[in-house]
Simulated assay, not measured.
Amino acid sequence: MATMNDQSRPSAAGSGRAGRGGGGGDARPVTLAEALGVLFEQDLHPATGTSRHTIDSYKTTFRLLVRFLEHRRPELLPPSTPVERFDASLIEAFLRYLRQERGCSPATINVRRAAFGSLGRALQRRYPHLTAYSHSLLAIRSRKAPEVLVGYFELRELEAIFKAIDSSTVDGFRDLCMLRCLYNTGARASELCGLRLSDLRLCEPAHVVLHGKGGKSRTVPLWSVTTDLLRAYLKAARRTPKAGHEDFVFIGRRGNALTRQGLYKIARLHLQAAARKLPQLLRPELHPVCSFRHTTATHLWMAGVSLPEIQDILGHVRPETTMRYRALSLERKRHALDRLLALRSNKPHWAVAQTALEWTNSQQAIDWLERL
């Protein structure tokens, strides 16, 4: 039998206040601080499999937003400000600020935009009354970014870079080992810097496990020259790591695991050194680190390796990403055009071209075309 207190107590269903994942009864204001807590502590927590780089990138986005608000909309800075006041028009103004005043590229703008899209999805799942606001964040248009041509190294350029490294020093030997690994495996900068001793297998069959985007891992075989370099590096050239960095393969001068920024500076230094003998290494489409990955893919394609195999080695999710590596080298393009010019002719290509200049009537021209 229910007591008077039981009868007078409102039920959870009729209280008008549902939980975070409730069916829409909770219409209380949600602050920006609470929204960011949901995003970073629940949706983007490393335990969910989100990449550490993604988390850091999104944190940078919201730090930049705070700097923007300090100068443009300081009244929105208090943590109690409802998240709905950060509407799509304000976010668009923030993205324009990044482009026009900070000089960010369209690709970077799209990365910043993605952070707000993730925030919108997180709010939509937990606060049904914010569905319209969430949709407005998701509707922010992306910027059209021009496709950036990342160049690759010809074989003689690659050898020039390796020869420019003074491998008689501890750091020089480490650098040679790193760049050789980049070329052998086609690893991304983050994958190489995050490489751990437990990811290496230097006995037969030698291979390395790379941990890529989205928590996906792949196994890449190692050439004997790469394996020998790694063995020698680990035995005699690896610096003593600091506490917490013992399992990382590549260690910097201060005992920390090498960072992507550190790898970029090292690769750029050796690229510039090699360019003293090969000035073409300074062409703008070459990237000190990314071009090694592009070189691996392009050389594999030129060697006759199929695109699905290249996709597996590089860890691409979409085949379309791998398709861009089908470009031929300039040397192969030149040979291809020479073969076209001399097709079905026993004469050298310059002689075939000369016959084109010796036409005396239209029939001779037609006969020449028939022989092609």
Rank of each mutant, 00 (worst) to 15 (best):
R218Q: 10
D312E: 15
P308A: 01
T360D: 13
C181Y: 02
R28W: 07
L343A: 01
R20V: 09
T54G: 04
V289S: 01
G304N: 07
G172P: 03
L222N: 09
F173N: 02
C290Q: 15
R96S: 15
Q272D: 13
K213V: 00
G25Y: 10
L263G: 08
K163S: 03
P79Y: 11
F40I: 04
R141S: 11
H299G: 14
C203I: 11
E41C: 08
A88H: 08
E84D: 11
R334N: 01
F250A: 03
L281N: 02
E92V: 13
E204S: 09
F62C: 04
D338M: 02
P284E: 13
P128H: 11
I55R: 08
Q311R: 12
L69H: 01
E92P: 04
A237W: 13
R201E: 02
L176W: 10
Q280F: 01
H270C: 08
E92I: 07
D199G: 04
R28C: 04
K235D: 15
L130W: 06
A275G: 04
P106E: 02
P319L: 14
G244A: 06
G214F: 04
T322G: 07
W301M: 15
K347M: 07
K213M: 01
E101A: 06
R231Q: 13
A187Y: 06
L281P: 07
K144A: 10
P319S: 06
G252P: 05
H53A: 13
F62S: 10
G49C: 10
G244L: 05
T321L: 00
V38D: 14
A356W: 15
A27V: 15
L182G: 02
G315S: 00
V148W: 04
I310E: 12
E84Y: 04
Q272R: 12
Q311T: 11
S190F: 06
R254P: 02
L357V: 04
I366G: 06
C104G: 01
Y233D: 11
G24R: 09
Q354W: 06
P221R: 05
G19K: 04
V170S: 12
L155P: 10
E246L: 10
W350F: 09
I310V: 14
V220L: 04
V209F: 01
E246G: 15
R174Q: 07
Q100W: 11
R371F: 01
A93D: 15
N5F: 00
R125T: 14
R334A: 08
R238T: 13
D312N: 09
A275S: 14
L36Y: 05
T360L: 01
L230M: 09
S11R: 02
E246K: 13
H294G: 12
L282M: 08
V148E: 15
K242H: 12
F94Q: 09
I366E: 14
Q364G: 07
W359M: 05
L282W: 00
K242V: 12
R125E: 14
R260L: 00
A353W: 03
T219K: 08
H270Y: 14
F86E: 04
V225N: 13
R218W: 05
R143D: 07
Y97N: 14
C193A: 06
Q311C: 10
L229E: 03
Q42F: 12
P29C: 10
A353C: 03
Y264M: 04
I140F: 03
K265M: 11
R268M: 11
F116M: 08
P10L: 07
E70P: 03
L77F: 05
R332W: 00
H211P: 03
L307P: 05
N346F: 12
V225K: 10
